[in-house]
Design a protein around this nucleic acid. Structure first.
Lengths: 217, 217
DNA sequence: GCATTGCGTTTACAGTGTAAACCTTGTTTA
DNA sequence: TAAACAAGGTTTACACTGTAAACGCAATGC
């Protein structure tokens, strides 16, 4: 039969399925069906579904092509990288639902390496660079998670009013001790939801790094 | 029969199941079994599994009791809050696997409100406060995600060597253009994994905020 | 006393991941 | 060349999932 099937055929098919129906609806049978092949065929190439997903995510990272132009200064480079990552993940947002259970692969680590290299050239120590990378990727991942949550929330039944009666006893008592019966913040939060979530932490992170660099000189 | 069953009985049972086997192995039948009741019983109290999970997470947040002592200064208060959140999520790490698909509830928003209030007292504008909150929670969520990933990775087959041959063509070509055949960063990364991931972004964020506060005066 | 309604039950169905055994090839070896 | 092997597919089977539909029973309101 179609004997050309190999690991990457299935990865391609998996990415196609994900683009179409999202990660959470990916099933072995569906991916196999994409290639007109039985589900069990994949088990000759992948130990299990998790391994298939990990491989697909690795390929996703590679294709996303997130590394910015090397000519940029470290701060712009960092910002661009974060935005690229955020955009890539936002476009296929269903990845977030399994980000926490994915295994890191070589491609993910290669990106880290480039980052540390770039900041190293700018005068940052390796340790600070790694910390900065962690912070950046945490911001990106967290932002995508939030975006997914907020979007689901908004899409469900329009904006939802938050009232104190919905709160748990613990939190409610806290609020009452704070002498407030209403959540003043709700409107501000809503205004912010429509903004790009990644634009919040990033400037703070970069300005913190600049300060650190200046202090070291 | 045990007619005392209500929404919160099931939430309690769900939290018990999660503590025992993790979120990803929670099933309606298992939760119901915990109460000696049929699975379908829950559908009289929750529209579906997602709603049950959302309710369980709300209760989880309330019980986590993350809000720090109000007497603390804003920076220490922020740091403590982030650490509390991180610890709470780390203890029941399986939440991360669905963090991206959870719906936000009143409890989550109440924490936001307290945060903005605290920073408001310290002289931050509402807008900066909200941004800071977003950044903080993104760091926390991202850190937990990373921790989960890294832990899974390390637990799988010991430390894994990263070699260039495992990389995708795209990434490999980037690395070669960068005149490097080896990933120098691997050891540094490994050294960092055992550290507390949340300790990286947080100081950077706080120092960025301090700078912003000083500049506003 | 009777209807209604709340809250459980059982049954059923389509879909899941994957183990086990099998079949069909092209390749290696005696 | 015959025999053995291995790669990579197939079919069947199993335990498990979320949940729709119909049913039953007890407490409540008229």
């Amino acid at each position: 039969m179609s004997r050309a099937l190999n690991r990457s055929s299935f990865v391609d098919a998996a990415l196609a399925v994900i683009a179409e129906v999202g990660v959470e609806r990916l099933s072995m049978r569906r991916v196999a069906g994409q290639l007109g092949v039985s589900a069990m065929a994949m088990y000759k190439h992948f130990a299990n579904k998790d391994e298939l997903l990990a491989a697909a995510f690795e390929e996703f990272i590679a294709r996303a092509d997130v590394l910015p132009d090397t000519q940029l200064d470290w701060d712009q480079w960092l910002e661009k990288l974060a935005i690229n990552m955020y955009n890539a993940l936002s476009a296929d947002m269903s990845w977030v639902s399994i980000l926490g259970s994915l295994r890191l692969g070589g491609n993910a680590i290669a990106v880290t390496d480039s980052f540390v290299n770039k900041l190293g050239e700018a005068g940052f120590s390796a340790e600070v660079s790694v910390r900065a990378y962690m912070a950046m990727i945490q911001l990106v991942v967290g932002a995508v998670c939030m975006r997914a949550s907020l979007q689901a929330e908004v899409g469900r039944e329009g904006r939802r009013k938050v009232v104190v009666s919905e709160l748990s006893p613990i939190t409610r008592s806290y609020l009452q001790n704070a002498d407030r019966q209403r959540l003043a913040i709700a409107p501000a939060l809503e205004a912010v939801v429509s903004d790009e979530p990644i634009s919040m932490g990033l400037p703070l992170l970069i300005s913190g790094l600049r300060q650190q660099l200046a202090a070291a000189d």
